[in-house]
Design a binder for these strands. Structure first.
Lengths: 182, 182
DNA sequence: TGTAGCATGTAAGCCGTTACATGATTGA
DNA sequence: TCAATCATGTAACGGCTTACATGCTACA
C-alpha cells in the first residue's frame, strides 16, 4: 500500500486527522473544502470541489479513509474518517518524504521583470493593486488566526498562520521600498 | 489571433523580447532554458526542456515568434526570434490581463501545520534543513544579481532579483523567530 | 577515447481546473 | 417562493513532468 500519493492528498489527509471540531464524526467533502479555504489556501492550494471528491475517492480506495453514510440529519451525506492505516501513512510521509523547496508563482514580479515594456504609471498602478490585494489577504488570514485563539490543540496551525502574516508584512515592506527606488 | 496563451508562454516570450545579449540573433530552446533557470525559476517556474520546445512550437504556430535555421556554426540549430505580432501580443498581455495574486506552495509550512504529529527534534531538523536550503537559494540568486550589475538595460530584472533576495532574508528571519517560539 | 555539455524532440501520464449536471435544505 | 448554501459528482481538457530516444561537439 505504498503507492505514494500527491502532496495534496496528504494535505487533505492532514485535515481529516485533526477532524475533531464538529459534533459529528468525520467530515463531508464540502466541509473539507471549507477547511482547506481556511488553511491550505495560504500555504499550498485549496483544490476545487471536484478535485476534493476525486481525492477522497482515491484515499478511500487506498484504504486511508472510510466513507460513512450519515443518516443523522434530515438528509444522508457521506462523512469521511481517517483509518489507522491512513494515520500511519500520513506519519510515514511526514517522517520520510523529501522536504522540497517552496514554489512561488508570482505574476507581479514576473511582470516587473518586463518593466521596460510598461509605462511608469502602469507599474505604479500594478504595485498599488498588489498592495491592496496583500492587505485583503492579510486580513483574511488575520481572521483565521483570531479564530484559532490560544487553544493548544491548534498551536501549530496558529504558528503557521503567524508565519503567513509575517510573510505578508515583509512583502508589503519590500514593495514599499521598491516603489521608492523606481 | 487573440487565443490567449498561458502565463508561462508569455514569460518565455518575455525572455525572447530581451534577447539582445548574444552575438547571434534569437535564441535556441536550450539557451532559453538556461535563461529561465536564471530568472523565471525564482518567481515563476523554469519549465522542463520538453515543455520549452512545446511552448516554442505553440508560439510559432501563433505567429508570435519566427524559427530561423542557424547554419553559422558547425552545426545547424533553430533560433527563435520574436515577431512584431509577438511584441504587441506581449504588450497587450502586460497592459490588459488580470494581475493574479501570487501562489505559494510551501511544503515546510504545510508540514508544520501537522506539527502535532511530528517530534520536536524532527521539526527542528526540518527548519534547519529549510534554513540551509534558503541560504543556498539566496546565494544562487545573489550570483544572478551580481551578473546583472548596474547595466540600465537590465534595471528591472535587477529590481526583481533584489525583491527575491529581500524575500529570502525575510523568510530566514521569520523562521528564526518561529524556532524560538517552539 | 570517453564524458560533459549542447541540442531537439515524442509519449505517457498526473494533477488540477472549468463547465456541466443534479438535487436538498434553510431562512428571508 | 425564491435565493443562498449545502452536497455530490462526471467530462473535457490544459499544463506540466518524467521517461525515453537521438545525435553532435568540445575538451581533458
Amino acid at each position: 500500500m505504498t503507492t505514494s500519493l500527491s502532496t495534496t492528498s496528504y494535505a487533505l489527509l492532514g485535515l481529516l486527522v485533526f477532524d475533531g471540531v464538529s459534533s459529528q464524526q468525520g467530515m463531508t467533502g464540502y466541509e473539507l473544502k471549507q477547511r482547506a479555504d481556511l488553511t491550505l489556501r495560504f500555504y499550498w492550494v485549496s483544490p476545487a470541489m471536484s478535485q476534493i471528491y476525486t481525492e477522497l475517492d482515491k484515499l478511500r480506495r487506498h484504504g486511508l479513509i472510510d466513507a460513512v453514510d450519515d443518516t443523522a440529519g434530515k438528509r444522508t451525506t457521506r462523512r469521511f474518517v481517517i483509518t489507522a492505516e491512513g494515520r500511519t501513512s500520513l506519519e510515514t510521509w511526514l517522517h520520510t518524504s523529501e522536504h522540497e523547496f517552496p514554489i512561488l508563482k508570482h505574476p507581479i514580479a514576473l511582470r516587473l521583470l518586463m518593466g521596460a515594456l510598461m509605462g511608469p504609471g502602469e507599474i505604479e498602478a500594478m504595485l498599488d493593486g498588489y498592495t491592496s490585494a496583500l492587505a485583503k489577504r492579510r486580513s483574511e488570514l488575520e481572521s483565521v488566526r483570531e479564530m484559532l485563539g490560544d487553544d493548544p490543540a491548534v498551536a501549530y496551525p496558529a504558528h503557521v498562520a503567524e508565519w503567513g502574516l509575517a510573510y505578508y508584512d515583509a512583502e508589503v515592506e519590500i514593495v514599499d521600498k521598491l516603489r521608492k527606488k523606481l
